Amino acid sequence: MLYRITVRNADGEKLEIVVEMSEDEVRALAEELRKAGYEVRVEPIPEGEEP
């Protein structure tokens, strides 16, 4: 499935990426980023919607 991941650092800089991963993989990635001090938001992209 496609997911949009938005990551912000302490300075407020934002990075937005689209990935194709399983829900478990995305959850693990988000958890690791949060542990590293980043603010993370994950949104699933519905099938048929443009990323």
Rank of each mutant, 00 (worst) to 15 (best):
E49T: 09
E25I: 05
E47A: 09
L15K: 14
E23L: 11
L15R: 14
V19R: 10
R4D: 00
A28H: 11
V18Y: 08
R8I: 07
E25G: 13
V42C: 05
K35L: 08
M1A: 05
V19W: 03
G37W: 15
V7K: 02
D11C: 13
V18M: 08
P46H: 11
E39R: 12
D11W: 13
G12V: 03
S22T: 12
M21V: 06
G12S: 03
G48A: 11
V40M: 01
L15H: 08
E25A: 14
E25V: 05
A36H: 08
R8N: 04
R27I: 10
L2I: 06
E39N: 15
I17E: 03
L29N: 01
E16H: 07
A30N: 01
P51A: 08
D11I: 14
K35H: 07
E32N: 14
V42W: 13
E16K: 05
L2Q: 07
L15A: 09
P46S: 09
M21F: 04
E31K: 10
E16R: 09
A10R: 11
L33R: 01
E50Q: 11
Y3W: 11
V26E: 00
L29Q: 02
E43C: 10
V19S: 03
A36D: 04
L15T: 11
R8E: 06
E50Y: 12
Y3D: 00
S22W: 10
E50G: 11
L33D: 00
Y3V: 02
R4A: 02
E13G: 13
E13L: 13
E39W: 14
T6H: 09
E20N: 14
E31F: 15
V19G: 04
E25S: 08
P44H: 11
V40S: 01
L2F: 14
R27T: 09
P44N: 09
R41I: 06
E16W: 11
I45M: 09
V19M: 06
V40G: 01
K35W: 06
A28M: 08
L29A: 03
V7R: 02
N9E: 02
K35T: 05
E32P: 01
D24N: 08
M21D: 01
E43N: 07
E25P: 01
E47Q: 12
P46D: 10
V42R: 01
V26A: 11
E43A: 10
I17A: 03
A28Y: 13
E13W: 15
R41P: 00
E43V: 13
V40F: 04
V26W: 02
I5Y: 00
N9T: 07
M1Y: 15
E32V: 15
R8L: 13
A28P: 01
E16N: 10
V18D: 03
E50R: 12
